[in-house]
């Protein structure tokens, strides 16, 4: 290919001093080869490799981050769903507990009322029995006292009446009667 160009350019290199426009200058080509080779190797080692690695790394980073974000989103969605169901469950549970407690309280109340009623009745019953007893006792005492008082009155009356003549007659009569018996 170089020969090609050289042949091609030699046709046009007649004009001018140091070769024509289309002639390949060995010196410049030599420097270009050196410079370009050095450029390729230097840039490859110190520029392209770090830059391309950094770019790849960043691309991977971005991809990973996006994937992670997607995964996190999915997870949070799942968690939210789970939370929702948990909350629902908890609500149901609490409602059940409250209902249970309420019914328990109801039965407790009823039982307490029942108990207290029966207790009261018992107390009333015992109280009335006591009253009855006391009444009877009081009546008995009253009777005794009344009998005693009436006896004392009768004694006094009889003592007074025995002094009279009439009484003596009556008394005599009763004595007679007694004798007859």
């Amino acid at each position: 290919m170089l020969a090609n160009i050289l042949a091609f350019s030699s046709m046009y290199s007649s004009e001018g001093g140091g070769g024509g426009l289309l002639s390949v200058d060995g010196g410049l080509a030599f420097w270009t080869v050196l410079t370009f080779l050095a450029l390729v190797f230097i840039l490859k080692k110190f520029a392209w490799k770090p830059i391309l690695t950094a770019l790849d790394e960043r691309e991977k980073n971005i991809k990973d981050s996006l994937e992670l974000a997607e995964k996190s989103k999915e997870e949070s969605k799942k968690l939210l769903e789970e939370n929702k169901t948990n909350l629902l469950k908890a609500e149901e549970e609490s409602r059940k507990i409250i209902n249970e407690a309420r019914s328990f309280a109801e039965t407790m109340k009823n039982q307490i009322i029942e108990d207290s009623k029966s207790q009261a009745q018992k107390i009333i019953a015992s109280a009335s029995a006591e009253i009855e007893r006391k009444k009877e006792e009081a009546f008995g005492e009253l009777k005794n006292q009344v009998a005693e008082i009436s006896l004392q009155i009768a004694e006094k009356v009889i003592k007074q009446n025995l002094n009279t003549s009439l009484n003596s007659e009556v008394i005599d009569k009763y004595i007679n009667e007694l004798q007859k018996n």
Binding site: G26, G27, W31, L39, L43, F46
Partner: peptide
């Protein structure tokens, strides 16, 4: 026997290469 004079284009070849290396080092 090869004329490897430092010519105008050689100078600018080097300027271009040096500038490129400088820039890309900075970027990297």
């Amino acid at each position: 026997g090869l004329d490897i004079s430092i010519t105008r284009h050689v100078v600018f070849l080097w300027i271009s290469a040096a500038l490129l290396i400088f820039l890309m080092m900075k970027v990297s």
